[in-house]
Amino acid sequence: MAEWMTAPVRTERATSDDEPRPADLFLVAVAAIGAKRAEHEWLGESRGRHERLGEGQQYLRRFDGGAVCWSSRTGAHEVHGPVAECWEAHGAETSILGFPITDSTPVAWPDGTTRPGGHAHFEGGSIYWSPEHGARVVRGMVRDIWALLGWERGALGLPVGDTELGDEGLLSARFEHGRIAWSSADGPLVEIAGAEASANRAGASDATSALDPASERLLGRLTPGFAPRD
């Protein structure tokens, strides 16, 4: 995933006056990673030098309790535990998830109290972890619909499976209390505890929806043909 920063960064001038030099970006990354480490003392001591990720000016430093990543697009964010393990298993920054855009954060019950588990958002999706269901990737329009419905605090609860791409572009994922599916041809489908709510599918008007009116209106905006993020 990464190469060790064992050689000095080149300091030649960039091709454009508006582009920072690699040496400048490295210094920015080091400072940002250090500041993030200072925010989270539980990360512990460093386990090595700053690592350069890929061919660009993107960096990571590992600590006893996790890692801090930096890119000019996303800034510095920490990842740790099962969320970090899942991210790396999917290819880390080279995967569809890309770089983290938030630190790892606890998950919550519907009443707002903290429940066991954690999550982090990435450029191309989110990873949610719980002891009951493991670490799961939620992405694309499935993630957007789930967000509209309140994330894990909503009626669906936490994901119990990764978001999967099926036949004819159907993107779907299962949650503790139901399922979300999306295709550009048919739009959103939300199934909650045996009741179906759909903005576009035939027969939706006969379903007994478990969603509140505000959520129904939000789903109604997601018409077929709406462009998903990935």
Rank of each mutant, 00 (worst) to 15 (best):
G44M: 10
L158R: 15
A135K: 11
D167R: 15
D103N: 12
E78C: 11
D167C: 09
H40T: 03
H177W: 14
R139I: 08
R13V: 13
T114G: 01
D212W: 05
P188M: 06
C86Q: 13
H121G: 06
F99L: 12
E168M: 13
G65T: 13
G150F: 09
G178E: 09
A32T: 10
D186P: 01
R153F: 04
A76M: 04
R201I: 09
A35R: 11
S172D: 01
L170M: 13
S72K: 12
A32L: 07
W87F: 04
Y59A: 02
L27V: 07
P228G: 14
G54L: 05
D17E: 09
R13E: 14
V28T: 13
F175N: 02
V28G: 10
R153C: 08
V107W: 04
H90F: 06
G166F: 02
D212P: 01
T11A: 09
G98I: 01
G169Y: 10
P116M: 09
E93A: 01
T102L: 03
E176W: 10
H90C: 04
H177R: 15
A67Y: 10
Q58W: 10
G124F: 10
G48C: 05
P82W: 06
A210Y: 05
A155R: 15
S130R: 15
L156I: 03
K36N: 11
M5S: 03
L222R: 07
W4G: 03
Q57R: 12
E12T: 15
D162Q: 06
A38Q: 13
F226C: 06
G124C: 10
L189K: 08
G220M: 11
T223R: 07
A155F: 09
H80P: 00
S72V: 13
D144T: 10
A23K: 03
A92C: 01
T94E: 15
V160K: 12
D18P: 00
R229W: 01
P110F: 07
L27G: 04
G124K: 11
L60Y: 02
R201A: 07
E152Y: 05
G169E: 15
L211I: 05
T208A: 09
R153V: 02
A7N: 07
E3I: 08
L25K: 11
H90D: 05
D17L: 10
V138N: 00
A35I: 04
D162G: 08
F26N: 01
R136F: 00
L27I: 07
V68E: 02
G44Y: 13
S215G: 06
G65Y: 02
F99T: 05
G91I: 08
W182M: 09
G225P: 01
D18V: 03
W109H: 12
G154L: 08
T11G: 12
G81M: 08
